[in-house]
Design a protein around this nucleic acid. Structure first.
Lengths: 125, 125
DNA sequence: TTCGTTGTATTATGCTTATTAATACAACGA
DNA sequence: TCGTTGTATTAATAAGCATAATACAACGAA
């Protein structure tokens, strides 16, 4: 479910953080769902448990998950499928398209950028 | 003229690089304008000359400035106001795509938004 | 209660990158 | 010639990321 790009400049703990948001946004995981235990996820990804801990702490700090010793880490409802953040992202994308148009950037260029991003980005499934 | 955020995760040399593009985009600096000498800028920003050198080298590599020993560093015409704005717009568009991806927005949705924008913008009557 | 599960905390280490430091050299123009 | 300025080099320092190895604390089930 989680996938890490070790070549990326983006820190692993941040990739995990983003993965949780992506998975929640895509509806793959939902409120109150349990995340993999730190040791388990670390094992699956072949990384150090501390790195997972760091990501989980960030998520908890931001109110996206809550953790209890002995039970595990669970999604809050802050990351429901149609969150305000998703709406914001769409809005910002629209603005970026407008601005690009304003400066005479061709549609083909935008499409090219999107497909580049697609190739470069990590897949989440 | 240049401003650095020491708290930012973005490296200083990268901030300088982006500053030059932004300044050109805003028309504050123009083609053939001279940039501050590395030692001067380093002094003003309170950083090491090598850091400025790194930024200037990147800019030169990308064809945005040209440098001559004894004379200084100057803007090329690749960074005229319009092209600088275009470069900025592309950067912002890339960021918007990344963010959209983060929240699980599908490519099809992005394409749809683009074509909507296209339809809306072409209605000239 | 015991025991496995799981989050949390700590300390040390290695690695990479960013930045600084201190010089020296080379080319340009007045 | 001499000040200005870009370039090059080598070393040292600092910060962030990740690993390693443990230990402790709380929860729930048997």
């Amino acid at each position: 479910m989680f996938q890490i790009d070790f070549a990326s400049r983006e820190p692993i703990y941040e990739q995990i953080y983003n993965s949780v948001i992506k998975l929640a946004s895509a509806g793959v995981i939902k409120s109150n769902d349990k995340l993999p235990p730190v040791r388990t996820l670390a094992g699956q990804l072949g990384i150090n448990p501390n790195t997972v801990v760091k990501a989980y702490h960030m998520l908890e700090n931001d109110g996206y998950i809550y953790s209890t010793v002995g039970r595990g880490s669970f999604l809050t409802d802050k990351l429901s499928k149609n969150s305000a953040q998703k709406i914001m992202a769409i809005k910002e994308f629209k603005e970026a398209v407008q601005k690009a148009k304003l400066f005479g950037i061709k549609i083909d260029e935008l499409l090219e950028i999107i497909s580049e991003t697609e190739r470069g980005g990590e897949s989440v499934d």
